[in-house]
Simulated scan of single mutants.
Amino acid sequence: MKLIDTHAHIFAPEFAEDQEDMVLRAKQAQVEQIFMPNIDNTSIEAMLALEEKHPGMCHALMGLHPCYVKEDYQQVLYEIESWFHKRTFKGIGEAGLDLYWDKTFFAQQQEVLRTQCQWAKQYQIPIVLHTRDAFKETLDIVQQQQDGSLTGIFHCFSGTVEEAHLAIEAGFLLGIGGVATFKNGGLEPVLQAVDLKHLVLETDSPYLAPVPYRGKRNEPSYLPKIAQRIAEIKSISLEEVALATTTNATQLFA
């Protein structure tokens, strides 16, 4: 059985004390690849260092997280974009919109998302979308930018069945994480209604640890717990979930 974690910030300070042990635990849990979305211009060095330590397993994505769009966003975007002239990346991210924490820079978040969608099309790589309390607003921009070549993941999907189908129609996969294991996570109807071919697995480490680790630091070795819950909801085997989601992720990030 092979698993792929499509979204984990394992370069974050939360892993400073046991980063190598954490990667080893992921391997032991049959997590063969981990995709690491960037945060802003200050997280790049740590992310690339971890990728260099574990080539073929840890993959860097490049982008600007919406919660880190501030007054200096144009300069930060310039710094981030400069990396595309130095090397290739597996994807753009973490991009998107966030109306949960702070609405101060929402217009700037929208501008940054449009720019990152354009990068995804220019470099022909997928984009990973953060949509906290902003699904409709994010989807509107994606639909405007869609020219048939834009692909990616609605990360940490926690919307309705209708929203799931809208994201899929827009050409995107759904990233399913620890929320699927929460008693009141609300994802059961979505997972029952959506075909496996539209799903990928993620942990969003160090956040949103699945049951029975809820409330603790999350890490990629917990990914089988998420896959198992999907299998239970869909009344299929864990192996079927692993094969389908690994195939989907491999094709997306090819």
Rank of each mutant, 00 (worst) to 15 (best):
I233D: 04
W83Y: 15
G148L: 14
L99R: 14
E94M: 11
V179Y: 02
A227K: 09
E79K: 14
H9G: 00
K183G: 04
Q143T: 13
G93A: 03
L77I: 14
D21L: 13
V69K: 00
L208C: 05
F154R: 08
G91E: 06
Q192G: 07
A193S: 14
D140Q: 10
D204S: 04
D147A: 03
R87K: 15
L97S: 01
K2C: 07
R87P: 01
S235I: 05
K216H: 09
P189D: 12
L48A: 02
D21A: 15
F84C: 08
K27E: 11
E17I: 06
V179H: 04
E163Y: 13
G215M: 12
L199S: 11
F135V: 10
A244H: 13
I92E: 02
A95Y: 00
C67L: 10
I236R: 11
A167L: 07
L150I: 05
K86R: 08
Q192I: 10
E202Q: 03
E137N: 13
T246S: 12
V190N: 02
Q28T: 13
P189R: 13
T247N: 13
N184G: 09
L64M: 07
F154K: 10
G177W: 12
Q109L: 10
A16H: 11
G178H: 04
A95S: 14
E137P: 02
A95Q: 02
V69L: 02
T181S: 04
F154D: 09
H155F: 10
Y68S: 01
K216A: 13
K225Y: 15
F89N: 01
G178P: 06
F172L: 02
A29S: 13
T151D: 04
T247K: 15
E137S: 12
I125L: 10
N184E: 13
E20H: 14
L199E: 12
L223V: 05
E81P: 03
R132M: 03
L174P: 00
G186L: 14
G93L: 00
E219A: 11
F35I: 11
A12N: 09
E111A: 07
T138H: 03
V190A: 07
V128R: 00
A60L: 12
K121G: 13
V76E: 11
W101N: 06
L24K: 14
I141F: 02
I34A: 02
V190C: 04
V190Y: 04
Q74W: 01
V76F: 02
Q75D: 10
L24E: 15
K234T: 10
D40K: 00
Q144R: 10
E79A: 12
S205D: 13
K86N: 06
K216W: 09
Q145H: 00
K53F: 06
F15V: 05
E202K: 01
G63K: 01
T245K: 06
Y207M: 06
